[in-house]
Write a protein that binds this DNA or RNA. Structure first.
Lengths: 178, 178
DNA sequence: GAAGATGGGACAGCCATATTGACGTATCTT
DNA sequence: AAGATACGTCAATATGGCTGTCCCATCTTC
């Protein structure tokens, strides 16, 4: 299958011979580097909030919920579900934990009363802020060391990892940047 | 507490006043953007191999082990442990699974016979390559869309997230690029 | 106003992946 | 010979996911 490839990204398992000569093959090292840096970078960043979480007897799942609720106050359960990409049942546990601890409060939707709008209490906001501080200091340090141009590139590549259909959802988080 | 908030996200418990004027504070939006893109980018990338894994009845833990063994043939159990940052017990299960399936083979260390050197069998290598194809196509697509300069920035920022003490370990993976 | 669709909640049971702590064995080092 | 190290293993536990099923309240549509 002679794909006259100016783009090196069209070769999958089947066309091994083609790949040998392709630019993509030559890039294997760069791809592995990205995989590894993403793995280590991501895990180290998340690790930085684990202590704060376990002090409160919570886990990362709780933080993710806190984070998105903080980011978009009054979001609905189904919106939160689409960010987290887990099942209703799994989210239920997390939300109940956070409610019991007084970190989130809910009220019925205004236009649609079936909806449940989630937002942080003052305590919840303070806790989220504390966790965010750890993320901030780590990421800000990395940003500062790399420089603004690198940060832009960092964003661009990551955006490219997100499927088209989901970009709008991610962008929505930035939209109501206040 | 009257935080004169143009942004709802500046109300962090303690040094609110101090931070208001700091460059770090001004970067909150950029930090949140990085956190979110990292989260979505990382999860979408890993999702791309889940299907290939579950076809074989394996999980992500197995892939991580396969990946590092593939990357550094004949690494020892303790080296693998330091990459994965899990306990011996947790790794044991994963390695046993992979051995039973004939994906990895072991032999005693040459200079130190207490060590167990891990490497992939032909089947293991083929399986790893298949999984890697999914990572490659996703990441290569993101690289291509972002451009080489962005890729460099992407690496730089991620490197900054890895603690000093661990950079050598990560770099070692690139060292014997074959 | 009835029927159906939708948002959300809950029960039961399961699985994957991690943890801690204790202990055992072979091998290397001193 | 003594101790440290590399690796393995037992048992118990936690977390955070999953599926399947059923339910209620509310909105939409005819």
């Amino acid at each position: 299958m002679a794909v006259p490839s100016s783009s090196p990204y069209d070769n999958h398992a089947h066309d091994a011979l083609l790949r040998t000569a392709s630019a993509l093959f030559l890039r294997e090292g760069e791809v592995r580097r990205g995989v590894e840096l993403l793995y280590f970078g991501y895990t180290r960043l998340t690790k930085s909030i684990d202590e704060g979480l376990s002090e409160h007897g919570l886990g990362r799942a709780h933080h993710r919920a806190l984070y998105f609720i903080s980011r978009q106050p009054d979001l609905t359960v189904s919106e939160l579900l689409s960010y987290l990409a887990i099942t209703k049942q799994s989210l239920g546990r997390v939300v109940n934990d956070l409610s019991k601890r007084g970190y989130i409060e809910t009220r019925a939707g205004t236009t649609d009363r079936r909806q449940k709008l989630l937002r942080l209490t003052a305590e919840g906001a303070a806790f989220e802020a504390q966790l965010f501080d750890a993320l901030r200091s780590k990421l800000a340090h990395a940003y500062a060391g790399a420089g603004q141009d690198s940060v832009t590139g960092f964003w661009r590549v990551l955006e490219g990892l997100i499927p088209e259909e989901e970009r709008a959802m991610v962008a929505a988080l930035q939209m109501d940047e206040r």
